[in-house]
């Protein structure tokens, strides 16, 4: 089993998320993280999917088979940036506040709110660094935590968002009939 990060472009249509998640569940692919939202193109959503699997090509092919899925790309080995965000509420007394704020600053996180003995902080960073920061917070009075799924984007001039181009170059898919 290995963790794989996939980028998926899909038609923004009713039921498409259900179909995608149902497929992964049915085929026993383990979802570690999933985030989905708008892409730069109207009507096309973009998903970053992290799956734990021994057979990522099956995941890619099965997703690709869905009618509303335009592009599936395994970016695990590709040069990419990956980010997660976490909001955390930490209970601190006045004495500990300074230490917390220092930690937040060192980690490149932000304090969003300070009220009545608790502080809400936000961190957006690579998954490993978010992990490390959250572990830190656990020793400092972590009360609540909300993490997003992962977002991934390839570096450089890769044209992720042109389904057609990707289809034609990629994955051994045959050409289609003129019809």
């Amino acid at each position: 089993m290995k963790e794989h990060t996939l980028i998926v472009l899909l038609q923004d249509r009713a039921g498409v998320l259900h179909r995608t998640v149902s497929l992964l569940r049915r085929r026993q692919f383990n979802i570690t993280s999933l985030s989905v939202g708008h892409s730069e193109m109207p009507g096309i959503s973009r998903m970053t999917l992290v799956v734990d699997t021994a057979d990522v090509t099956q995941v890619v092919k099965q997703l690709d088979r869905l009618v509303d899925v335009l592009v599936v790309r395994d970016v695990t080995e590709a040069p990419s940036v990956q980010r997660e965000t976490a909001l955390a509420k930490v209970a601190v007394d006045e004495d500990a506040l300074f230490a917390l704020i220092t930690r937040v600053r060192d980690a490149g996180a932000r304090v969003l709110d300070v009220a009545g003995g608790s502080v809400v902080v936000e961190i957006t960073d690579s998954p490993v660094r978010v992990d490390a920061f959250v572990e830190d917070l656990r020793t400092m009075g972590l009360r609540e935590l909300m993490r997003t799924g992962r977002l991934a984007m390839m570096r450089g001039e890769v044209e992720m968002s042109r389904p057609q181009a990707f289809r034609e170059q990629g994955d051994g898919a045959g050409e289609e009939d003129a019809a």
């Binding site: 899909l10 038609q11 869905l66 009618v67 509303d68 899925v69 335009l70 389904p163 057609q164 289809r167 051994g172 898919a173 045959g174 050409e175 289609e176 009939d177």
Partner: peptide
Amino acid sequence: DLPGYRPAQVPH
């Protein structure tokens, strides 16, 4: 309107 549905036809 099926941009994501392109079944293969001609083998490479």
